[in-house]
């Protein structure tokens, strides 16, 4: 709506006869005022809801702040405490483990699904929708469905294992299995979105390349390896960066599915941070955790940006 208003106005002013310099200057000033007015909701949002909390949390990170009494400056105390907080490192380890399983699994599966669904066959929209449904469902719904499927006694997962003669598993109740299980469920929920990004990337690859490769006798696997994968390397990069960031910020899933259990085995860093801030009255410490996590994400993203030069081809 706002866009059509702006373009409508621009075309109108272009159609007008040229006016004097003063007139033009006052118009420019007016235009600027209009621009600020139109941008004001976003600017207000940016200032009040993003920059202000960001600055506040940076300040809190150097204080003890219990939400009730005013923050007290403590310098780097929160950060030195972090260094020796085994629980924090454990949650970071859990998060890394989750990321190592989840990021490649989701990226590879999303690419394979996109390739499989990038075809002109009947009912293809139905399949694409099926993979996209978990993406638009809320985590609470997905968790509920996953929980009942993974119930060690009555869930379909163990029923199937039992049926093919394999030992049944305590998916979410076993400390060793809980993170891989959560990663699996997260892939199921998130793969549809990444698949969609890959589909868009795939459709940008010119059909002629495949035809030429076919003429030259390249197999399907060779076409995937030498045409598709380089062709979507830009998308792959985007998917990797997005997935890694969301993984390091993962919260809802563990909050609703395991609450960090069993016995802390699935406590991810953001859940730990939430506990410190909203359950233990330690908002200063929680803010310090948030900033350390932010720096980690920043470093990892910079590393990814650097590495992309080696493997990402923009056509």
């Amino acid at each position: 709506m706002a866009q059509s208003v702006v373009t409508g106005r621009a075309s109108q002013s272009a159609a007008r006869p040229p006016a004097g310099v003063d007139n033009r200057r006052s118009r420019r000033r007016k235009d600027r005022a209009w621009g600020v007015l139109f941008a004001s909701p976003y600017l207000a949002h940016l200032l009040l809801l993003m920059l202000w909390p960001l600055g506040a949390s940076l300040y809190f990170a150097f204080t003890t702040y219990d939400l009730v009494n005013p923050p007290e400056w403590t310098g780097f105390e929160n950060f030195t405490r972090l260094l020796s907080d085994n629980n924090f490192w454990r949650t970071l380890g859990n998060t890394a483990y989750f990321a190592v399983l989840f990021v490649p699994a989701q990226t590879i599966l999303a690419l394979l699904l996109a390739v499989a669904l990038n075809q002109k066959i009947k009912g293809i929209a139905l399949f694409r929708t099926a993979f996209f449904v978990p993406v638009v469902s809320s985590w609470v719904v997905v968790a509920y469905v996953a929980d009942s499927m993974l119930n060690p006694r009555s869930g379909i997962a163990n029923t199937l294992l039992d049926w093919v003669g394999l030992p049944t598993q305590d998916w979410l109740q076993s400390p060793a299995l809980v993170i891989p299980t959560l990663a699996g469920v997260a892939v199921w929920k998130g793969v549809g979105y990444m698949m969609l990004l890959f589909l868009a990337g795939l459709q940008a690859i010119p059909e002629e390349r495949y035809e030429a490769a076919k003429v030259d006798g390249a197999s399907a696997l060779q076409r995937l390896r030498h045409i598709t994968m380089p062709g979507v390397s830009g998308t792959t990069f985007l998917v990797l960066v997005l997935t890694l960031i969301t993984t390091l910020q993962a919260f809802e899933q563990v909050f609703v599915m395991t609450d960090g259990g069993p016995n802390g085995a699935s406590e991810l860093t953001v859940l730990y941070m939430y506990r410190q801030g909203f359950e233990y009255f330690q908002m200063g410490y929680a803010s310090a955790i948030a900033w350390v996590l932010f720096l980690l994400i920043l470093v990892l993203t910079i590393v990814q940006l650097r590495l992309q030069r080696k493997w990402v081809h923009y056509a």
Binding site: P175, P262, N263, G264, R275, E279, Y280
Partner: peptide, 21 residues
């Protein structure tokens, strides 16, 4: 600090009851 300290106790004790610790 009831929630925090009992949380620590509970996690450790439950870990023994679950047979791991």
């Amino acid at each position: 600090v009831w929630a925090e300290y009992t949380g620590v106790l509970n996690e450790n004790i439950m870990a023994t009851l679950d047979g791991g610790a």
